[in-house]
Amino acid sequence: MIRTLVADDQVTVAQAHADLVERVPGFVCVGMVHDGRQVLARVGRGDVDLLLLDLAMPELTGLEVLRALRSQPRSPDVVVISAARDLDSVRECVRAGAVHYLIKPFTFAALRQKLEHYASYREIASREGTVTDQAEIDAALAALRDAGDSVLPKGLSRETLAAVRHVLRTTPQGVGAQAVAEEIGVSRVTARRYLEHLVEIGSVERLPVYGRTGRPELVYRLS
């Protein structure tokens, strides 16, 4: 089992994240802490494999915790979970050693995917001995990647997916498949395939909009 520590300054949020961790096969939550100094003290006990770390922590910020952990010889791997969407925060966390960055709020599917990819990486990287060739290192690093981005379903292109994401970013209130189709110049069916793919990998949420006769319209927005 991968022993996971949840760190979030909000008690209810930490509990919710801990409950989600327990739902992922192969993972167990070994505790919850609510400020940066508590994180370092709890990690110091030596029984934490993975830390889910919020950035907005009292006493020590999440980024300060990350930097402090780098000086410890057997520190856990860290997945940052934060509402911060600016690229500076992402870059700083990567520089400080985070293996993943998950934006709040997120779906269970998104967290499960990150944890499953981490478990695959850990299984490869924890083998004893030396690697035989570059391919083994590539396989370990590839395991950390989001499968939703690295391997697209048949018939989907990265260029069109990027265009769909751009429309979603510029319409934070949500947008329907028809509007996306008209914006990027594809059919409604095609636009919906891309939108549903983003829903499946946890990047987008699907919401029904009521108020008109007949079936509710589906609106998609970034999670």
Rank of each mutant, 00 (worst) to 15 (best):
E123M: 07
A83R: 08
L40Y: 06
Q178A: 14
L40E: 00
V21K: 06
A83N: 04
A191R: 03
L195A: 02
I2S: 04
L207G: 00
A98L: 08
A98I: 08
G174I: 11
G148M: 05
R23K: 15
S203Q: 14
V33Y: 10
V151F: 10
I124G: 07
D49H: 13
G214T: 06
L53N: 09
T4R: 04
R127F: 01
V80K: 05
H197N: 00
I137V: 15
C93V: 01
Q72L: 14
L69T: 02
D133R: 09
S120H: 15
R3I: 04
D54Y: 11
L168W: 01
A162L: 12
Q38L: 10
T4H: 10
S187C: 02
H197V: 03
A110M: 02
Y118P: 05
M57Y: 03
S126W: 01
L102I: 07
G148W: 06
M57N: 03
H34C: 06
S71T: 14
V79R: 10
S223C: 12
R221K: 12
A143T: 10
P58W: 09
E183M: 11
V30N: 00
F27W: 06
V43W: 01
R192C: 06
D149L: 14
V30D: 02
K114P: 00
Q72W: 06
F106A: 06
Q10A: 12
A135D: 10
E92Y: 02
Y118E: 07
Q38N: 05
E92D: 15
V189H: 13
L69A: 01
P105L: 03
C93E: 05
A191H: 06
L63V: 04
A109S: 15
T171E: 09
G26K: 10
L207N: 06
Q72H: 11
T213E: 13
V99A: 04
T4V: 14
G46W: 07
L102T: 00
I201A: 02
L207R: 14
G155I: 06
A18E: 11
P172S: 05
G185Q: 12
G31K: 11
Y220T: 05
V43A: 02
Q15H: 13
P216F: 07
S75I: 00
A140V: 06
V94M: 08
L152C: 00
R23V: 11
V48E: 01
R215E: 08
L102D: 02
E59W: 11
L207F: 00
G185K: 12
V39R: 04
E217H: 08
R67A: 07
R95V: 02
H100A: 15
T4Q: 02
R193H: 09
P25D: 13
V78C: 07
D9M: 01
R122M: 00
A143P: 05
V204Y: 11
L55R: 03
I201M: 05
R212A: 11
E123Q: 13
R91S: 15
P105K: 01
R127G: 09
D86R: 09
